[in-house]
């Protein structure tokens, strides 16, 4: 589609703009831009392990990207991905406690996945209900829910299902059946078949958003609330549904982390996936399929920020944060330019 092509070209232009700016900054900091690029590339694709780690960082972003993109369709801005993923991860860990007698790995994984999805979904649904019934602004309520989720997850971790053997803030280790096996090729990076499932999930959500009546209703409400209402689409139900789905998606991060990586819930495991998810969705411009390259890019940057610190003299961790920031800025600034053009023509 022409319009889609245009949008993705714009996103790519934004990324290139940001990257150029970042490399200029590196140059002035005394590091060869060429080397920075090389390090970034090698740190993400250099070996099976590196690539696996990049995918490991990108995987939660697929989900948190969806958690932002789905409600955007319905006109809502979900800032609560971080809280929703904490609750989802906690639920996945809790599933291991509740279902410790489940022997079949398939059943165990499905059980924990359902737990994570529903728990995250409910965490998202609460702001959805508040918005639908009381008109509370979802940005405020989702931020509040983030705080509550942080508190709740610490409490549960430290007092309810804490690992008594560990002096760290982490829950009990899950039974073997709950562990997802990583690929041998990734040589220790905690990522396996799950990555294909997640990519398929993005495609399914895309197809569903585009072709289902529910998806249509979300779109109609997001685009024109009044028209939707006039033609019999309930915005309340659309909002609640969108937020439940969003929360559920973020909650599935629990599967990536708890079943795939740590096999337990550890306080502070998230590299701000919920918030980076906002940038991912922004870069994808609301296009669901766009989340895949966009999440991969941020995975590369996250992986690269540590490697840049290690491999170069001048680019410290802070500078690699600046690079990330500039790339986001490049994308947003391009949007700003667009907006100004529109304002001028109006």
């Amino acid at each position: 589609m022409n319009r889609m092509m245009k949008a993705s070209l714009k996103s790519i232009a934004g990324v290139l703009l940001g990257l150029t700016l970042a490399l200029i900054v590196c140059h002035f900091a005394g590091e060869s831009p060429w080397k920075v690029l090389k390090v970034l590339f090698q740190s993400s694709f250099g070996s099976g392990y590196d690539f696996g780690m990049t995918l490991f960082y990108a995987a939660p972003l697929f989900l948190t990207g969806l958690a932002v993109s789905i409600p955007i369709r319905a006109g809502l801005f979900n800032v609560g991905g971080e809280g929703q993923l904490l609750i989802g991860a906690l639920a996945a860990a809790y599933a291991g406690v509740v279902g410790k007698n489940i022997a079949s790995p398939v059943a165990a994984v499905l059980f924990a996945t359902a737990f994570a999805f529903v728990a995250g979904g409910i965490w998202g649904l609460i702001p959805g209900i508040l918005k639908a019934k009381r008109g509370s602004h979802e940005v405020i309520t989702t931020i509040m829910m983030n705080f509550i989720a942080a508190g709740l997850s610490s409490y549960v971790t430290l007092y309810l299902i804490k690992d008594p053997e560990s002096s760290q803030a982490e829950t009990m280790l899950l039974p073997e059946a709950f562990h997802l096996k990583p690929f041998e090729k990734f040589a220790g990076a905690p990522m396996g078949w799950l990555i294909f499932v997640l990519i398929a999930l993005v495609f399914v959500i895309h197809y569903w958003m585009w072709n289902s009546v529910r998806g249509y209703e979300l779109k109609a409400v997001g685009e024109n609330e009044k028209a939707a209402e006039t033609y019999g689409i309930s915005k309340q139900s659309a909002w609640m549904f969108a937020m439940f789905m969003a929360g559920g998606m973020a909650g599935l991060v629990g599967v990536v982390e708890v079943l795939g990586n740590a096999h337990r819930f550890k306080l502070g495991f998230s590299a701000d996936y919920g918030f980076v998810g906002i940038a991912v969705a922004l870069l994808a411009r609301g296009n669901i399929l766009g989340i895949i390259p966009s999440a991969l890019l941020f995975g590369i940057l996250q992986k690269g920020s540590a490697s840049l610190d290690l491999e170069t003299d001048k680019v410290t961790r802070d500078l690699s944060y600046i690079i990330q920031g500039l790339i986001i800025l490049g994308v947003v600034a391009e949007g700003l330019f667009e907006w100004r053009k529109k304002a001028k023509n109006a």
């Binding site: 685009e223 024109n224 028209a227 939707a228 033609y231």
Partner: peptide, 26 residues
């Protein structure tokens, strides 16, 4: 129904004719 205000009540301006044709017929 043809609503009072075409732009604010009857149309999804950033969607194509197909999507608009579906509104109410979804």
């Amino acid at each position: 129904l043809v609503p009072e205000d075409r732009l604010s009540e009857a149309l999804l301006k950033q969607q194509d004719m197909t999507e608009n044709f579906l509104l109410g017929q979804h």
